[in-house]
Amino acid sequence: MNKSTLRSLALGFLASGILTGAYAIFFQGNVPIQGVTIPSVLNSSSATHEEELAQYRDEMSSLIAERNTLEENQVTKDEEIASLTEKNTGLENQIAELQLENRSLSSDGDGEQSETEDETTTEDSTDEETENSTSSTSGTFVISQGETSVDIASNLEAQGFVESAAEFQALLDEWGLNSIIQAGSYEISSDMTIHDIANEITHGAYYYY
């Protein structure tokens, strides 16, 4: 056989195989492989797709459930935050009320304390005035050499022995006692009248009945 004959024979076998396979597939529904058919291939592919779809549905349902859970948790947290905010506002209002009450009590306490202090001061002043009016001054009164009657009268008033230097000076002037007052130390007191003091510092030169 020459080459052209062999080539023709090979092409004939190839064409025969192609026609046989096409007939088996399109007319008999069989793939020219043992145990494999077109329906089985199609059914297998469809089952795989169904399984994948079912898996996707399950995953989608799981994701939706997780999303719903997260949303519910978020709502719960929002409610808790709102409740805490409301409680905080209530506490702030209570604190403000307590501060106002404290200020009011402090103001009342200061007012009462001020009134008490004023009353105490008034009582002390009254007591001092009473003591001053009732207490007497007694002691040694010194007349220095060369002092005038004006100086003596002023010193008597300054040391509390007489109430008025002018009144005592008027007495000295009226009775002409300015020149007969003698220097020295005299034991006198504010209980004595101006006449008694004048009698004392003149060594009895003046007497008054």
Rank of each mutant, 00 (worst) to 15 (best):
T37F: 04
D191W: 00
E167D: 14
Y209G: 07
H49Q: 12
E115T: 07
G35R: 11
G29H: 10
G146K: 12
L9A: 05
V142N: 15
T116L: 15
S104D: 14
T137C: 06
G160D: 00
S144K: 10
A205S: 13
S16A: 15
S8G: 09
V36K: 08
S61A: 11
I81P: 04
L171E: 12
S106M: 08
I188C: 08
E101R: 05
E50A: 09
L70W: 08
G111M: 14
G12H: 09
G109Q: 15
A24N: 10
Q169K: 05
V75A: 14
S61T: 12
L98K: 13
A65Y: 07
R103Y: 00
E59L: 05
S106D: 13
N178E: 04
A158Q: 10
S8Q: 15
D58A: 15
F168Q: 04
T140S: 14
I152A: 00
D196E: 14
E129M: 08
V142W: 11
M1D: 00
A198K: 12
T126E: 15
Q28A: 08
E163P: 00
S125D: 11
N199F: 00
L98W: 10
I201K: 00
L70C: 06
L172I: 07
I194T: 01
T69R: 15
S179I: 06
I81H: 01
Y186R: 05
G184H: 15
